[in-house]
Design a protein around this nucleic acid. Sequence first.
DNA 1: ATTTGCCAACCAGCGTTACC
DNA 2: GGTAACGCTGGTTGGCAAAT
Length: 353
Amino acid sequence: MRIEIPQDLPRRRETSPQTSAPRPQEPNSVQRHLQSIKERADQSRTNHAPSRSAPSRRPERQREAAPRPRSVKDPRESTDPRRPQRNKIPSQTIGMQLRPEERKVMLELGKFRVVRTRDLADSVYDGKQRKLGEDLNYLRSKGLVETRHINLRRDGTRRQIDRAEVATLTRDGRAWLRKSGEVPKDQTVYYGFVKPREMEHDSLIYRAYRDASQRIERDGGSNLRVKLDFEIKAGVQKDIYRARKADPKRDMADIKEEVAAKHSLPFVNGGIQIPDARIEFDPNDDARSQEADQGSRTGGHEDIEVLTAAYRRGHLRAKAQAGFRNYASSSDRASISAKIEDEHQMMRDIFDL
DNA sequence: ATTTGCCAACCAGCGTTACC
DNA sequence: GGTAACGCTGGTTGGCAAAT
């Protein structure tokens, strides 16, 4: 049973006008390459930034970073000229009743920011794509969710470009979700497409989570929360900054090691290894009493990492040493195994997506 | 001569605080 | 409030050396 409401929500603009500033000079090969990457990213972006025109780097970054998150607890809170500004949930969506599947979709999108619709169909609709499609249409029509298609990376052996549909919450969608009471305590809610180049990679995190979370719950873990790398990184950098401010002469490696320990993150080759996502959970009673006996904190976590073919050997080794639960898609697995074929233990520790 | 693998450099996208 | 400057990881390229 769905409560219908007047459908007069302003639809978000699909595209923004392109600026047509002339290029100041002929770009070199690197600039041309970067330009092509930028154009590809812009092509797949519904809210794309104006085309590049100025040669200097930082001012460009400042302009493009306009919609970036301002705080960890409230990502993308900053003003975005491409969005209608709202300080509260629009009246149309206050108290809107959604079906359990729709609420579940909203929650998953809020936890992971970007999820492939096929994965949502598998996890929420028992694989029924059509049912998901109907509900996504409804949520889109209410301005709670937006979807887009992304080009998947090619592995070099195929000319065909595969595409996948991904979804995210809108600003209003996040507001609805927060008011709904569906969100566990300490769970950040994300919204909006960011980092177009990494969207394919990020969309795989949900798959990895599904596998890891099933295992955690099977072992008695409960009250699962997800922290994405944005949030983990923010906490790490805040502490690094504080430590440097307190003692500017202190060795950076020393600071990093201390901060890594504070956040229970591995410190490998002089760097803090930050996972793609951390699943926090309340352990079962046995584990809890064991922790209490040892005087350690209650609560557990598992760090997950999605490896892709783009990872270099050094990256792969660092991730393996970090002790993360590593995942890779079958297509990336072949390329990864070629890079670390002499390190069989590492391959064994990579799980299929 | 060509291919392959590695590394350094660069940029993107995220974070923070300081300063004007 | 906008800009600057700094930090991080991930992704990509060009250049170089080694292998074929």
